[in-house]
């Protein structure tokens, strides 16, 4: 598999990472995702990493930069389902991913995105 599928759910995009992330895959995902945001006019991106057991600093940084890029394109990013071991690794690496929103599972992440979208449309 050389591409991670990006699913569209209403005005949000859903990315489920189920394979080991290597650097090239991460960069491809970054390209695809930004392209998709423009094409669909998505307001939010949900990245599910619950089946990811190992991360390195590159993947950690990549998640951060995806969030920053999405924000520039008016879409919010929520990372959901991070495993305890992954969280500990990222903290030990000094990557606390400021500016990324997190949730325990896809359901809660979706609720977070919807609440954010509702708030913004009201404003």
């Amino acid at each position: 598999m050389d591409r991670i599928p990006i699913l569209r759910m209403g005005e949000f995009l859903l990315v489920t990472i189920q394979v080991d992330m290597h650097d090239q895959l991460a960069l491809t995902l970054q390209d695809d995702l930004t392209a998709q945001i423009t094409r669909t006019g998505a307001r939010g991106v949900l990245i599910d990493i619950s089946s990811l057991d190992v991360v390195d600093s590159f993947i950690g940084r990549m998640l951060g930069s995806i969030a920053s890029m999405a924000r520039l394109m008016n879409a919010e990013t929520v990372v959901v389902g991070m495993q305890p071991s992954v969280a500990i690794t990222l903290v030990e690496l000094g990557l606390t991913l400021h500016g990324i929103r997190t949730a325990l599972n896809v359901e809660k992440g979706m609720a977070l995105l919807r609440a954010g979208a509702a708030r913004r449309s009201r404003a």
Binding site: V86, A87, L90, T102, L104, G109
Partner: peptide, 12 residues
Amino acid sequence: MKTVAAARLMGA
């Protein structure tokens, strides 16, 4: 702080 940061990364 580390514990708090790790929990936050997981969405808590």
